[in-house]
Nucleic acid binder design. Structure first.
Lengths: 276, 276
DNA sequence: CAGGGTGCTTTCAATGGTTGGAATAGTATT
DNA sequence: AATACTATTCCAACCATTGAAAGCACCCTG
């Protein structure tokens, strides 16, 4: 289009860049480069992983640093800033539920002295919102801010069981992922499990890796009766019988639900929402 | 107004907009609109508070929602999203110190059953990173993610005392702010106080509002000996003598410091850094 | 101490993503 | 029905954005 090839240098200095992506997306993709394993990154690392030239990355990063989304260390590397954390703490599904649930998590933790977890669902995974652990606790399962699968963890099964039908079907039809340490679950069994979880308000999973543990989880409801979070406890296999843990976990989850305005139903069944 | 429909149009359709601000800054200013009191906002509220036209705000927000920085509620309002919280949890000075300190905060909390606070400094304020509170605790002082002044809180004084000289001077020369509930501190007294804090590793403040409380705080050091955080306990005035609290708070803070790689010095003095 | 390598920063002309007034549709209030 | 407010779509003008190129700074290794 509009060639006009005369007298010009085909690839002169100002070569046409491809561009094409919104600036915000690029900036956000820079934030997305950070992960558990990448908490402090150099400019070139950020540029490389975000897939953009260094000058572009530098310009964007400069804006992020100016605002406080990123901070620069003495050695020149960049880390996620406190300002971003501050805004993020206003996330209702992040710190929101956490704030309300924390006292009850603490109670449960004090009594049991084992890992107490709180998670919400984000798309097809569970995001860990809180974890209380003793200093000498068993090997850590997941870290706060990390993600866990829905199908092979107790905390995830609860969230899956409480999700809208359509979403559940999508997940159910997906072929089971091979994950070491947990016994696989084909669609039929998974369906029955989810049904049980809804009926009993309890999900339970045994793991053999990274260590032999038993997880018990229970749903947290909001005022509308929707499952908004999942509360779980993880104990070394054989330490405390699951049937002793279950009532404690369910009681804690119920206490949080009540605090969120949930009125307990006559039936204990989880009502699945056909639309979410 | 100003009909002038057909024929000549001096200021035709495509009128020159002022523009002039980087896109990222605009997007970030949208995030900055959210606060403790504004956790769920409509498009027009966001546009108004961020000072931009609705269509512009909508376009930017659409990108933020697509990435997960914001989420849209059923009623059309926007809230901070879990994805943003997830990235923010990688903030070393945010969740980083929190993760390491939490077990020790829990210990202190279990023993005392009073508010236990953890904060870092961001510019001229303390940002609350963690707060453990009993369900029936006294009136809350500050919330997690919120900010507290450096000069009139125990947790802030510790951070101020450990800041670089240049910064301290800037703050010291600022006229004392009038805040109800705390006794004011002129420059001279503040200087002496900060010196005491450095020497003893303890800051103490009495408040009469919102309730009569005593706060005791102690610094947390990193491997380089810099004050990176402040640990505090807030108790109702008269409940527990401060001289009983001080050793417990200092011990907890020291335990966290050790975990950060800090080697205790012969002297207990806080070394102020001339450059930070 | 040249020489090669890596990473950070600045420059600058071309350009395409960005902009916001205007129009339209939807919703609540008078 | 009229009024007021919010949300969304449209689009032509335009300026912020872009990235190759070059310049710095700082390692290494020979």
């Amino acid at each position: 289009m509009t060639a006009t090839p005369e007298t010009d240098t085909p690839t002169a200095r100002g070569k046409r860049p491809k561009q094409g992506e919104p600036v915000i997306d690029r900036a956000l993709s820079l934030l997305a480069v950070f992960s558990d394993r990448r908490r402090a990154l150099t400019l070139s690392e950020l540029a490389r992983h975000a897939g953009m030239p260094a000058p572009t990355a530098l310009r964007l990063i400069a804006r992020l640093v100016a605002w406080g989304a990123l901070e620069r260390l003495d050695d020149g590397r960049y880390v996620v800033g406190v300002r971003l954390w501050e805004v993020a703490s206003l996330s209702p599904r992040g710190h929101g539920v956490r704030e309300i649930a924390l006292p009850y998590l603490e109670d449960l933790f004090e009594v049991t002295r084992h890992h107490v977890l709180l998670a919400v669902r984000d798309n097809e995974q569970a995001v860990l919102i809180e974890r209380l652990s003793a200093k000498d606790a068993t090997e850590v399962a997941y870290r706060v801010g990390g993600r866990a699968p829905l199908r092979s963890t107790a905390i995830g099964l609860v969230l899956l069981a409480g999700a809208d039908q359509q979403f559940q079907e999508t997940i159910l039809k997906r072929p089971p992922e091979i994950e070491p340490g947990v016994s696989e679950m084909p669609e039929g069994q998974l369906r029955r499990t989810l049904s049980d979880v809804r009926r009993t308000g309890i999900a339970m999973i045994r793991r053999s890796l990274p260590s032999r543990t038993v997880s018990v989880a229970s749903p947290i409801f909001d005022a509308q009766g929707a499952v908004v979070a999942s509360l779980s406890i993880v104990v070394p296999d054989g330490s405390t019988p699951p049937n002793v843990l279950a009532p404690a976990v369910r009681a804690a989850a119920r206490a949080v639900s009540r605090n969120l305005g949930f009125q307990a139903q006559a039936s204990t069944d989880i009502r699945t929402h056909s639309n979410g």
